[in-house]
Nucleic acid binder design. Structure first.
Lengths: 209, 209
DNA sequence: ACCTGAACACCGTTCAAGT
DNA sequence: ACCTGAACACCGTTCAAGT
């Protein structure tokens, strides 16, 4: 049997994204994906060199909505907007943060490289020298991926628990409403403001900026 | 055959650490480890419930040298010292950052939880309210794990390249001496100072601290 | 150009049975 | 208490051969 859409690569990434959303990254295997496509595992290797490359393509698909040019009066607002878009994109797919973190670390996400460059541009706008602006951008990216990964794993853990014991409301468990507030953007924003304050801080020697 | 040291668990973690250092995390499998110990794979499941638990024990072994109480006049120096110790510990083992990141994310590293608590204490010392101090500590941990992971993968990639083409010196490749300087602690320190500046920043409303 | 069939060399985990 | 034997249900990747 053949893949039949205009672009076979697109069809594969479509199916992979569906498997990801429905079953999570642990079940996104080459064999499982091939089965879902009605094809032999080896067929996938005509279109992608290895699994990491395919996962990178899925990661870039996930990142699609995060590329929108952030509008904002100043660099602070623009960075905050970009990070918020990125977080939303990651939270929109099961294990999205883990997938993108892994692909970025493996050097397989052109999307994250692009976002990194945009953030570095804004950091330069804030007055940092080129080298330091890139380091600041990496720091921001590490933060967003890490914090969103934490948040997502808690969300998914809670959701799994809610399915197993439907009689127990989420707030009656170990997590208080205050915990939830801190997780639903509040905690994320706090950490991000810390970073932005650091970038804006005038205490670094002028030679170091 | 039986494991024979005083504590079988310790012997397993010893062997696992050796496999990690010599072959990396990808080769640290239950079967490989059992072979190295002259034992059947199933034997490991008498001592550990699952692989993640064993990896968590290895992660805590790696973190051993990072527990030393950081001395320092002020919270800034103490946090910087703790982060430096943590980075050193991670860089001391092949794929150390990846191992600890994964174990921490999976909730299997008591060591990282401890370090997190120490950092939160210092952030409180800096004047942050308890909830915010914990968020700040998490931000720092995400940064150290992410930045050190990047650094380590580049180091290991360069080392692998140096072994393959011994005639080419590291500095004659794509990375300039400036890149190396930025990686060998300089880049790490810059990102960390950014975070510390953010924690010290007086611009947050008093109600928010 | 694109896919199948079949193999290679592995995985984590479980569990009755042995000592 | 601790381990073996053997199985179960999988993996990623390669490649000659087919269409």
């Amino acid at each position: 049997m053949h893949l039949h859409k205009r672009d076979p690569k697109t069809e594969i990434v479509d199916a992979a994204t569906t498997v990801l959303d429905n079953y999570g990254i642990a079940d996104l295997t080459m064999r499982r994906l091939a089965r879902e496509l009605g094809v032999t595992p080896g067929a996938l290797y005509w279109h992608f060199d290895h699994k990491q490359q395919l996962l990178g393509a899925v990661a870039d698909r996930v990142l699609g909505p995060a590329y929108a040019d952030a509008v904002g009066i100043d660099w602070r607002q623009r960075i905050a907007g970009m990070c918020s878009q990125l977080r939303d994109a990651l939270l929109s797919h099961t294990d999205g943060a883990e997938l993108v973190s892994g692909s970025f670390a493996a050097g397989q996400s052109r999307g994250m490289e692009h976002i990194l460059a945009l953030l570095a541009r804004e950091a330069a706008e804030a007055g940092l020298a080129a080298g330091h602006a890139e380091l600041a951008a990496r720091t921001i990216v590490h933060y967003v991926l890490g914090a969103t990964g934490d948040e997502q794993s808690r969300i998914q853990w809670d959701a799994a628990g809610a399915l197993q014991t439907p009689g127990v409301t989420p707030t009656s468990g170990g997590h208080s409403p205050i915990d939830r507030l801190a997780d639903q953007g509040g905690g994320f924003d706090f950490g991000l403001q810390l970073l932005l304050d650091g970038i804006a801080a005038p205490r670094l020697l002028p030679a170091m900026r």
